[in-house]
Amino acid sequence: MAKMLYSATMSLDGFIAEHGGDMSWMKPYFGPNPEMDNIVDRIGALLVGRRTFEGDDPNKGTEHEGAFGGAWSGPTFVLTHRIPADPAPGITFMDDLESAVAAAKEAAGDKYVNILGAETARSCLDAGLLDEVLVCVAPVLLGDGTRLFERPGGDNVQLERISLTHGEFATNIWTRVLPR
């Protein structure tokens, strides 16, 4: 059965996007990273928040536009409160977290459902649906923006390290979410 994986590139001070959702800060840190390069083959579906889906792609307008530098092709589920009247082809828009997770898991088979978007990942965590987190830490301090996880007043979430690897421009920390 599919596992729910939240993967993101993060600045050393904990941000995945600059203020306003700008993700162009990542460009200097793209480069050889075997952990991140190999993850795409292990993903069976994406679960994406609406803001991330409509957000700032650092590769927009290039051959690398899209999830995972354009390497992703497959079922994509967008979690939103505003389902468009004319959805994009090949994209499934859903307004219920548990239904979206169930549909994404079914589509993923025995591979990962990769979550894109901090709010969607937090919702999965809060609902007890998040299994693993893979963070690619880039050596930069952004100072402000969208945090990897923000849970004001939230409790601690215990993680167990699965692996620690290094790419040319970043460090990858892969963890398992422990039961509460």
Score class of each variant (00 low, 15 high):
23 M>L: 00
102 A>R: 12
62 T>S: 15
64 H>W: 12
82 R>I: 06
90 G>F: 10
165 T>C: 09
5 L>E: 09
72 W>K: 01
118 A>H: 03
150 E>S: 15
114 N>Y: 09
176 R>D: 11
21 G>D: 04
98 E>Q: 14
16 I>G: 03
108 A>C: 06
120 T>A: 10
138 A>F: 02
21 G>H: 01
44 G>V: 09
136 C>G: 13
87 P>F: 00
68 F>I: 00
69 G>R: 07
125 L>G: 06
73 S>E: 13
163 S>V: 04
3 K>Q: 14
178 L>I: 13
52 T>E: 05
170 A>T: 07
8 A>N: 14
122 R>E: 14
145 G>R: 00
136 C>N: 13
88 A>Q: 15
98 E>M: 12
44 G>W: 15
48 V>N: 02
107 A>K: 13
150 E>W: 10
86 D>G: 07
93 F>D: 02
44 G>K: 13
57 D>C: 06
66 G>T: 07
151 R>M: 05
63 E>R: 12
61 G>D: 13
54 E>N: 11
43 I>R: 00
92 T>F: 01
2 A>E: 08
172 N>V: 14
139 P>D: 02
89 P>M: 01
4 M>W: 09
50 R>H: 15
18 E>H: 13
133 V>K: 01
136 C>H: 09
105 K>E: 05
62 T>E: 09
80 T>R: 03
78 V>A: 05
74 G>D: 09
100 A>N: 02
56 D>N: 15
173 I>W: 11
123 S>G: 05
125 L>D: 04
97 L>I: 11
152 P>C: 06
149 F>G: 04
15 F>D: 03
57 D>W: 07
6 Y>T: 00
65 E>F: 00
27 K>N: 14
8 A>P: 12
129 L>C: 12
23 M>F: 00
